[in-house]
């Protein structure tokens, strides 16, 4: 725990013996598990802490998240507000979020598309104007998603890693918005790339069609669904209808309402 952190979050008269405890949270979404391992009870002074955490495999699956937090252990008495957190259990600092992969799913070993955050205004090959993102198909075999970090507040928000609070909720709403636009493009591109045999050339196209095609046509036969998607996309008569199907399926898949409701309930407190 760096000295500067203590100076930033405790008033001067508390800095020699910070009334704080340090612990690591352990979270596993798949097993609805939240716990903590206390590393240091009050007082917690700056320095290095060796941490060893044992988590039973019986309690977790998928991925575990570990993150250190520093919280106050007592309310601060005395004069009115001075800009420092003053209540017991108030969070005053947190550290890097670590992921422990307990079970690796084969299909997750490699992301289907790459992503990178960059300032669009400083890269000639990226679009002008205030774009939020750009899906780059210059290399058709491996599309790349660029996120515009021109706006520092948006860039910072998209880097937050938490799962609760206003920032995390706002981030999830933005990510839903981006992913909707990205999936529409990937689906239309993949569907248009299907050849007469029903095959596609690239791995990402295969992944997109495997994921969505059957649901678009409510059939269990992926080959039939893929052919229908290709035919529908190439015919001006059926194009509007297939776009409507895609829109409906993506709303089911992304479920943008859910994150929006979280934002309203938790982030905006309305």
């Amino acid at each position: 725990m760096p000295e500067e952190a203590v100076q930033a979050v405790f008033p001067e008269n508390e800095r020699s013996e910070p009334p704080a405890k340090l612990y690591v949270t352990i979270r596993c979404h798949e097993t609805i598990y939240r716990d903590r391992e206390v590393i240091s009870e009050t007082h917690t002074t700056p320095g290095e802490y060796d941490v060893s955490i044992e988590v039973s495999k019986h309690t977790v699956r998928g991925t575990i998240e570990l993150r250190p937090y520093l919280v106050r252990t007592e309310a601060r008495s005395g004069k009115g507000p001075n800009g420092y957190a003053d209540q017991k259990n108030f969070r005053v600092a947190s550290g890097t979020l670590y992921y422990v992969v307990v079970d690796r799913h084969e299909e997750e070993e490699r992301a289907a598309i790459d992503g990178e955050r960059v300032r669009f205004s400083q890269n000639a090959h990226l679009p002008d104007g205030n774009k939020l993102y750009y899906l780059d198909f210059r290399n058709e075999s491996r599309p790349k998603l660029w996120i515009n970090s021109d706006h520092p507040r948006i860039a910072e928000l998209l880097q937050t890693r938490g799962s609760v609070g206003a920032e995390a909720r706002m981030r999830d709403v933005i990510l839903d918005q981006v992913s909707y636009g990205v999936w529409v493009q990937l689906l239309v591109r993949a569907g248009s790339a299907v050849d007469v045999e029903g095959d596609v050339e690239h791995e990402w196209q295969e992944m997109v069609l495997q994921t969505f095609a059957r649901n678009l046509y409510e059939t269990s036969d992926v080959s039939e669904a893929t052919h229908r998607l290709r035919d529908d996309l190439s015919d001006p008569q059926t194009l509007p209808h297939v776009m409507q199907r895609i829109d409906s399926e993506l709303q089911e898949y992304i479920d943008p309402r859910e994150q929006l409701i979280h934002l309203m309930e938790e982030g905006l407190q309305i």
Partner: peptide
């Protein structure tokens, strides 16, 4: 309580502290 958790770190609370709050 949910609103209070924007400042209070949930896992920092023991059952007794959560009850009190």
């Amino acid at each position: 309580f949910n609103h209070a958790l924007t400042n209070v770190q949930l896992e920092g609370l023991s059952e007794a502290e959560a009850s009190e709050m």
